[in-house]
Design a protein around this nucleic acid. Structure first.
Lengths: 150, 150
DNA sequence: GCCTCATGTAATGATAGTTATTACATGATA
DNA sequence: TATCATGTAATAACTATCATTACATGAGGC
């Protein structure tokens, strides 16, 4: 099991929208080139990010732009935007526990709270990662590249 | 995306093996009845739990038994036993970021550490949940049932 | 020592989710 | 108004999950 690549694509998009904002017209085709995925996939993710209020989309010269400052965007916001995890929860429960069995009859009452706790721990960590830090890290890495070449 | 039901099935199995150890011969068919899943699925999960050293399997009268005390089994042990998450990691990365793009070229360097941090947070919470607590909770719930009926 | 029965495993199929792709309608902006 | 980007529908390939049938293997009970 893995969380769909729509999540890393979405983060990639946010980084690129910020990074190229002064040098490029950022369109779905341009982003698809950077991400290495199909433009339709990118447009769908763009739509998710727009609906979540993370980016704004214009067809004009300005192209895409961030709708909020990077400090106010976390991994969790992006993760929610692209619906990585089913509304049923992170864990898929077996669907037909036997109600005539004392264990089967109580299995949800016994596990649901702890399973939600695990999901909450994951999501809390996602809330702790700010896109501003990610973008700063990206700029540092790119700057380092140039320095090592010189 | 959801974590396979093999995880909740495996936890169900551990609970049932302990709960019925004095009253029933616990076999894959019996467990399949309690879980409400196919006996082959149950046998596969049993095999995973055996390989992880969590249960021992005998064909004789004794049936299945725990190979360790419940205090020494956590959600994480069960989660590892049934291989819920790809070895590649919890997050599926888009596979062809553009190496000619400064963002695409550095996206792994920028994200891998934080993504692993999220996965670690989830797994740390799983390590904090002991099956002994889960089994005790199960026994309490079943006891409550009887009391409410009376 | 043989018989029974549970486990282990292979093979197949149904279903659903993910990603890619073509195609086209819509709508904003230059 | 022409252009070009977005939005979206439809289809397909691929993979993962779960169910199911079938059968070989092997351990325990008698």
């Amino acid at each position: 099991m893995q969380i769909t690549s729509k999540f890393t694509i979405a983060v990639h998009i946010v980084i690129a929208v910020d990074y190229f904002k002064d040098s490029q017209k950022v369109t779905s085709n341009f982003l698809a080139g950077s991400v290495g995925a199909n433009p339709v996939i990118v447009r769908n993710v763009m739509g998710d990010l727009k609906n979540a209020g993370i980016i704004s989309i214009s067809q004009g010269k300005s192209g895409m732009a961030l709708a909020r400052v990077l400090e106010d965007i976390t991994f969790y916001d992006v993760y929610r935007a692209v619906s990585c995890v089913s509304d049923e929860g992170l864990f898929h429960f077996h669907e037909k526990p036997n109600m005539d069995c004392p264990v089967g009859r109580n299995i949800h009452k016994v596990l649901d709270e702890e399973l939600l706790g695990v999901q909450n721990a994951m999501e809390a960590q996602m809330k702790a990662v700010k896109l501003s830090d990610i973008v700063n890290k990206t700029r540092r890495e790119i700057a380092n590249e140039v320095n090592s070449q010189a």
